[in-house]
Amino acid sequence: MTPHRTRNILICSGKGGVGKTTLTANLGIALARQGVRTAVLDADFGLRNLDLLLGLENRIVFTAQEVLAGSCRLEQALVKHKQEPNLALLPAGNPRMLEWLKPEDMQAIVGMLAPSFDVVLIDCPAGIEDGFKNAVSAAQEAIVITTPEVSAVRDADRVIGLLNIHGIKPIQLVLNRVRPKMMANQEMLSVNDVTDILALPLLGLVVEDEQVIVSTNRGEPLTLSGSGSPAAQAYSNVARRLRGEDVPLPDPAKMGRGLRAKLRGLIKTKIFRQQ
């Protein structure tokens, strides 16, 4: 980290449900574990969920709304993560905030966070309306997350166009919910298909992993436990690449599904040469 230039990174996708908030939560934890002072800002005022994925929903007293109104100090609204003190959440306020919230308000919030944090991750709402525009105005760089599905890629493309117009740079791509087996059978858009179409550098590849659901059930992001699950590793690697570390991207053709699957595969391949 260069001494005190806070990186404000927007995490967006266009389409809903592709993993924006999960990425924000896991990336936030992973960065914090790597010693980066990280704030996660829930910019999805309409449908906030970042607090839930981080397991911080019961500890919210004040929100961005009170901070902006001047009725509390920033430090009072920030919820520090117990296990990862390098990470703090600034919760989204009441959905009615959407009626008056402006890009300047988001910029003001991010400006307040800057002195105490190295990275601010902004969890963008789905869509490309006002909520998106407010969130974009506070960011300098962006991570676009998508899945290898036509609708998600199309929406990502639309968002990338808008990010370009706003002068956001760099824009990097995280491909989520990759199913290596389907890709191998050519029943899913390949990694190259998606990167070619969207013309973005790939920051990370996350395989479909049931553990993600288990972790959200518990409110403990996968990266928190340092678990060896494929998605946890992928998120940690995204964090390392984001910090400029050169971590090679995995080849989906060689991705196993957990240690047991790998062992099983190993035993089989000796005799039958796969499947």
Binding site: R154, D157, G161, Q186, E187
Partner: peptide
């Protein structure tokens, strides 16, 4: 054709129009 091929072709077409 494999469905990935179909997906890619359909996407390229629709994006050309979108863009």
């Amino acid at each position: 054709p494999a469905s990935a091929t179909t997906a890619r072709e359909r996407l390229q077409l629709v994006l050309a129009h979108d863009r």
